[in-house]
Design a binder for these strands. Sequence first.
DNA 1: AACATTCGTTCACTATATCGAACCACTGTC
DNA 2: GACAGTGGTTCGATATAGTGAACGAATGTT
Lengths: 193, 193
Amino acid sequence: MFDIANDSPTGASLSAAIAAQVRVRRTQRGLSAAELARQAGLSKATVSALEAGRANPTVDTLDAVALALRIPLTDLLTRGTDPGPVLLRGTAMPDEGPAREMLRRIGGGRSVELWRLRLPPRTQVDGVAHSPGTTEILLVADGSVTAGPAAEPAELSAGDLLAFAGDQAHLYRSGGDPAEVAMLIASPVPGTS
Amino acid sequence: MFDIANDSPTGASLSAAIAAQVRVRRTQRGLSAAELARQAGLSKATVSALEAGRANPTVDTLDAVALALRIPLTDLLTRGTDPGPVLLRGTAMPDEGPAREMLRRIGGGRSVELWRLRLPPRTQVDGVAHSPGTTEILLVADGSVTAGPAAEPAELSAGDLLAFAGDQAHLYRSGGDPAEVAMLIASPVPGTS
DNA sequence: AACATTCGTTCACTATATCGAACCACTGTC
DNA sequence: GACAGTGGTTCGATATAGTGAACGAATGTT
């Protein structure tokens, strides 16, 4: 069965992520912790605990911090994601009721390209390795293809979905029939870091 | 001057926004408040207060709720819904040779989520309006669906691709057969400008 | 040198977010 | 009817997030 990777593993790592975010964005802005506390209308103790990762702040305090840092609230909650490939077969979902499940979130600062790839029978296309951090997502619309990292390609048929890191050698190869694939390339924008 | 538009106008409305989000996403998932509390490991009182908009939850509780709802934590904090319809219909590819064609490029500074949506026959799911600037891309893997902006949905069948602005009311509705849709949500990261 | 600021942490106290239980409304089921 | 189960709200009790003050350490000022 498919264990869909949720990027929220533990609550503990959440406060750690918040701590890192706050500290980074604060120093980026050239603020001292005391000054941040002042501008946010919080006590120094709160900010100190926040950045030490031993806090479980309320949304109000987080909002105050975000406002003082001039960043959107959600930016403080982005956790580091370093996923492996996601392979989703056509029948992976449970049977009952309507279902909507997130398979993967790709961090901010991305440029997204949407491609459509058509392969005549028995054709192979070698994908160029993109810049580090690039994620490719394939959705097989018709036919069947062998695609993915060159080291470990996957057999896909219509309805299958594959997400993998695009910063390595990869390929798309059709079988006996023509194949159509929707491809999405999410690459990091070089400037945001 | 550049006052970075924080999507948190007032601190008070924040809890209201969270309340609305939680309630909508919960009913969408067909959960009762009691069941949500159970799955999230919270007390019914907490969930009740949350949905009543008279709570200032900690990130841990919010995270628990988001996890139980199978949605990213930040989705509970998004607020503001603006229109701006854009529709792109993926049609047939040319016939000869291998082809790789870029259909659309979405500007940088995006966060990308990959979802899978499964619809039993004759089922409608109302999509929650995402933050402004969000783009949704649907690829119908199986069956046929009527999807898109609520004001102007499109008829899609297997292999069809639809991209539209997700920051408005939208829907996914299946016909007589069950449908499977891969859904991609590209949302702007407001910190980058 | 002594003094004044500012920074960041730690501590007891207060405010409050969460819990557990009680409660009422509603829906079956016998 | 009585009864058991679920859903949602309200209310004290409790755990804890936040505060305010004190502290040592740096740094600058006279």
